[in-house]
Simulated scan of single mutants.
Amino acid sequence: MKKTTLTALLLALINTGCQKQPAALPEQERAAITKQFEESDEKINGYFDLLENPGTSQDVRKQILCKDWPNVYYKQYVPALKQLSPEYTDEELSQALDRAVDYYKEKYVINCDL
């Protein structure tokens, strides 16, 4: 159930980000931002695949949840999404990541503080 909710939330964010594009952005800049968004989205989807793969080690899961995913999310995904869909707030996007990461931390008993 949590995975379904999480997936639906992330897909809604992705879908909205791809559909709404500010008219003020020049076509070349919009294309570059869209490319950044799509590339970061691909990376994040790759993290989902690794997290769900039963063969993925706890060390790899911890690296993804504690470092890789937040890094890509905040440095690539969020800036691109906010340019494509400025109605999203930093707080909303931060909460979305927190919910997703917390779900996997709980599922795989991972503590980033250690």
Results as ranks from 00 to 15, higher is better:
95 Q>Y: 08
101 V>A: 15
38 E>M: 14
100 A>F: 14
11 L>Q: 09
86 P>H: 04
107 K>G: 03
77 Y>T: 00
62 K>T: 13
5 T>I: 10
81 L>F: 08
93 L>A: 09
58 Q>F: 06
1 M>S: 11
63 Q>R: 10
107 K>Y: 08
5 T>R: 07
90 D>K: 02
58 Q>L: 08
54 P>E: 08
19 Q>T: 15
10 L>S: 10
8 A>D: 09
78 V>L: 02
57 S>A: 07
45 N>K: 02
17 G>A: 07
104 Y>F: 15
89 T>L: 09
81 L>Y: 12
78 V>S: 01
1 M>H: 12
92 E>V: 09
108 Y>N: 08
31 A>M: 04
42 E>V: 00
13 L>F: 15
97 L>I: 11
42 E>Y: 05
57 S>M: 03
7 T>M: 02
65 L>E: 02
56 T>C: 02
60 V>A: 09
71 N>P: 00
18 C>L: 09
7 T>A: 03
76 Q>W: 07
87 E>I: 10
39 E>K: 13
91 E>A: 12
109 V>H: 11
80 A>P: 01
40 S>I: 11
73 Y>D: 01
82 K>F: 03
63 Q>F: 14
23 A>T: 11
81 L>C: 05
27 E>M: 05
70 P>L: 03
39 E>Q: 10
61 R>W: 06
2 K>P: 03
57 S>F: 06
24 A>M: 04
9 L>Q: 13
46 G>I: 00
85 S>G: 04
78 V>R: 01
3 K>L: 14
51 L>Q: 01
84 L>G: 11
27 E>Q: 07
74 Y>F: 14
15 N>G: 15
69 W>V: 07
87 E>S: 15
62 K>V: 06
114 L>I: 15
29 E>Q: 10
79 P>H: 11
66 C>N: 12
107 K>R: 13
65 L>R: 07
4 T>A: 13
22 P>E: 02
80 A>N: 05
91 E>N: 11
90 D>Y: 12
41 D>Y: 05
41 D>K: 03
6 L>G: 13
104 Y>N: 01
29 E>S: 07
83 Q>L: 15
72 V>H: 05
68 D>M: 09
40 S>T: 12
114 L>R: 13
45 N>M: 07
22 P>K: 03
15 N>L: 07
66 C>A: 08
90 D>Q: 12
31 A>T: 12
35 K>G: 05
101 V>S: 14
